[in-house]
């Protein structure tokens, strides 16, 4: 079945076993596309009916994802036309990325010394991540779209 792609630059896909709720997966994919440059301000997000036809999910789920993006200030709906990107995500510069990566590898080495295996590392990181972002004030997630709440990628 060929899907009419319309004017959208990206296509969504779902990972049903990831444990991540569907609407969040859509949000994350938009944010990833923004980071990687597939989406720029002014681009139109896929029409709800196209997403629904392709993925066989509930349109309310897609609407929820788009509302979340609007709430974060990343997108805005234009009545009768669709939902459009209206902001970018801060690109983390390459040196910053490299520095973070070095720190991470160092921490992983410490974890291995203590005797934590791969699953243990993942569990520890996941719970820490959850607690970290839970304590952030809500204002961080609205208005400026500087931080994305990206799950474990």
């Amino acid at each position: 079945m060929t899907i009419d792609k319309g004017d959208s630059a990206i296509e969504f896909r779902l990972d049903p076993d990831s444990g991540v709720p569907t609407y969040l997966q859509l949000v994350q994919q938009v944010e990833r596309a923004l980071r990687l440059g597939y989406l720029k301000p002014g681009d139109q997000l896929p029409k709800v009916r196209d997403v629904v036809a392709a993925l066989t999910i509930n349109p309310n789920t897609v609407l929820k994802a788009y509302r979340e993006l609007e709430h974060k200030g990343l997108a805005a709906g234009r009545p009768g036309q669709g939902t459009f990107i209206q902001a970018t995500l801060e690109q983390v510069t390459l040196p910053e990325l490299a520095g973070l990566r070095r720190t991470l590898l160092g921490w992983l080495a410490s974890a291995e010394e203590v005797g934590l295996d791969e699953d243990g590392v993942v569990a520890l990181f996941a719970s820490g991540l959850r607690d970290f972002f839970k304590t952030r004030p809500a204002a961080d997630n609205a208005g400026t779209a500087d931080h994305g709440t990206e799950g474990v990628a």
């Binding site: 709800v48 629904v52 036809a53 392709a54 066989t56 509930n58 349109p59 309310n60």
Partner: peptide
């Protein structure tokens, strides 16, 4: 299901 979902949309 896709047809039904599209009708909803």
């Amino acid at each position: 299901l896709a047809a039904v979902m599209t009708a909803m949309a």
